[in-house]
């Protein structure tokens, strides 16, 4: 099929960007969206232009590297990642707008590549269980009810892609942060640090310049891994609980 692409081009964080238009032909519907961009880039290189920079690695929808706003929707029309979005969901002659994640906490690095390191700092503020290597008890010492294990898994499935932030009108990282808080706080292994974890991560989230949550719900709609909106309620509950319990930091 034949497509018109309008893609955000921006050389680096300091220079202003703009949408550029490209015509592309001979797109197979079995291609992934990224393979379509690969073809565009091959053509750009031979034409002596700079190819479009975008993050990607696994191309299986699991590493969370890829991410772009396609026609105003994070990761495009399907509930999946850009690398797992196939061209059969578009039709011949379409005009497709491709933009980077837009959020103050995710500055653009180049073209469709943004800096998501703020996520790593949120995890560093408590998104772990403090168990040095070797200090672990026998795995069966603490059975975990299947429901808890499944709930933990459902939230642990977050791939840190940032679509939630990109989709949120407030550039809020609530869904991402909530996913990790719920994952660890529902498990007995996470219990000892239950309060410090949620307090620390929310504080970091604010410090990283993410917006607040107005319960808009766009994040959960965009999330390729189906992290439920109620995760945010659960995190709020954990946060208020921790605040009341009184071990407040700073």
């Amino acid at each position: 099929m034949k497509l018109t692409l309008r893609i955000w081009r921006q050389h680096d964080a300091d220079t202003a960007g703009a949408m550029a238009t490209y015509e592309i032909d001979g797109i197979s519907e079995d291609m992934s969206f990224l393979e379509m961009l690969d073809q565009l880039n091959e053509e750009l290189i031979l034409a002596g232009d700079d190819p479009v920079a975008f993050d990607h690695d696994c191309r299986e929808g699991i590493c969370g590297a890829c991410g772009m706003v396609i026609n105003g929707q994070a990761h495009g029309p399907e509930r999946t990642t850009a690398c797992q979005l196939h061209m059969r969901h578009f039709s011949d002659g379409d005009t497709i707008d491709v933009e980077p994640w837009r959020a103050a906490a995710f500055p653009v690095v180049r073209d469709l590549v943004v800096d998501r390191s703020a996520f790593d700092r949120v995890i560093g503020a408590g998104g772990y269980v403090s168990v040095p290597t070797g200090a672990a008890p026998e795995a069966h010492a603490t059975p975990v009810p299947k429901e808890a294990a499944d709930l933990a898994f459902e939230h642990a499935a977050c791939i840190g892609c940032g679509a939630c932030v990109a989709a949120c009108p407030n550039g809020s990282a609530m869904l991402f942060t909530a996913a990790k808080v719920v994952h660890l706080n529902v498990l007995p292994q996470g219990a000892p640090e239950r309060e410090s974890r949620v307090l620390g991560m929310v504080e970091a989230m604010d410090d990283q310049g993410f917006g607040g949550c107005t319960n808009t719900g766009e994040c959960a709609t965009a999330c390729p891994k189906g992290i439920p909106l109620t995760a945010i309620a659960a995190m709020n509950r954990e946060y208020l609980r921790a605040s009341v319990k009184g071990n407040r930091r700073r």
Partner: peptide, 22 residues
């Protein structure tokens, strides 16, 4: 065997049976 202990302690949500065991 130590690996499984370590990962479980970290909160890795391995599949479990209804009894709560791995």
């Amino acid at each position: 065997v130590e690996i499984i202990d370590q990962c479980v302690a970290q909160g890795v949500p391995f599949a479990r049976e209804y009894g709560g065991l791995l």
